[in-house]
């Protein structure tokens, strides 16, 4: 597989198709991100966010981890994006986007920050010696479950505490309004 990718495969073969799909996924992710940042309407921004999530899920799938990819769609699109869209539709009336700088970080500063970040990341990407790794494990659910509860149990527990705090916070806020 790796050799085929390294030695430019023909476009009209399965490997070529896979390459095209990879490029399409990158395009989807970038387009979604740009829509999410630049749209005038909040709901459209949420739609852009969903497109971006789906693109990222496709990239995970491409990287041989279907479990993470499906979880990305199930959690980020199915739960988080729907919740955001729901909240936006229930709460905010239509708002005109304010034009012109709204804070001290907009304008030239924002441009400088963006340029710095872009340059930094490009340098990092170009100067890193990317090792081509063989598969670490089969990426199956069992393997992930075992690793999560043995090697990474600390992280697992921390995440549960964060979620518990979030639920408690939501309860506190909901109670205050009564």
């Amino acid at each position: 597989m790796n050799q085929n990718i390294a030695s430019h495969p023909e476009l009209f073969s399965v490997e070529g198709l896979v390459g095209v799909v990879f490029l399409i996924l990158i395009a989807i992710t970038l387009t979604g991100g740009i829509i999410a940042c630049n749209s005038n309407r909040v709901v459209r921004a949420v739609a852009g966010l969903i497109v971006c999530f789906v693109g990222v899920a496709g990239l995970y799938f491409f990287l041989n981890s279907p479990f993470i990819s499906m979880m990305q769609i199930l959690i980020y699109v199915g739960a988080i994006a729907v919740t955001i869209a729901f909240a936006v539709m229930l709460a905010a009336p239509e708002e005109k986007k304010k034009f012109g700088p709204t804070g001290p970080l907009e304008g030239p500063f924002a441009f400088a920050t963006a340029a710095l970040l872009a340059g930094g990341f490009s340098l990092l990407a170009l100067n890193t010696d990317w090792p081509v790794r063989q598969k670490i494990n089969d990426g199956s659910v069992e393997e992930i479950g075992i690793r999560l509860l043995t090697e990474h149990s600390m992280v697992f527990e921390l995440i549960s505490i964060v979620l518990l705090i979030a639920i408690l916070g939501a309860l506190v806020i909901a109670r205050r309004e009564e």
Partner: peptide, 15 residues
């Protein structure tokens, strides 16, 4: 992860 895939895409439907 077939089961997961079907539920993931079912979740897309509600959007």
């Amino acid at each position: 992860v077939g089961v997961l895939m079907i539920f993931a895409f079912a979740a897309l439907g509600s959007t």
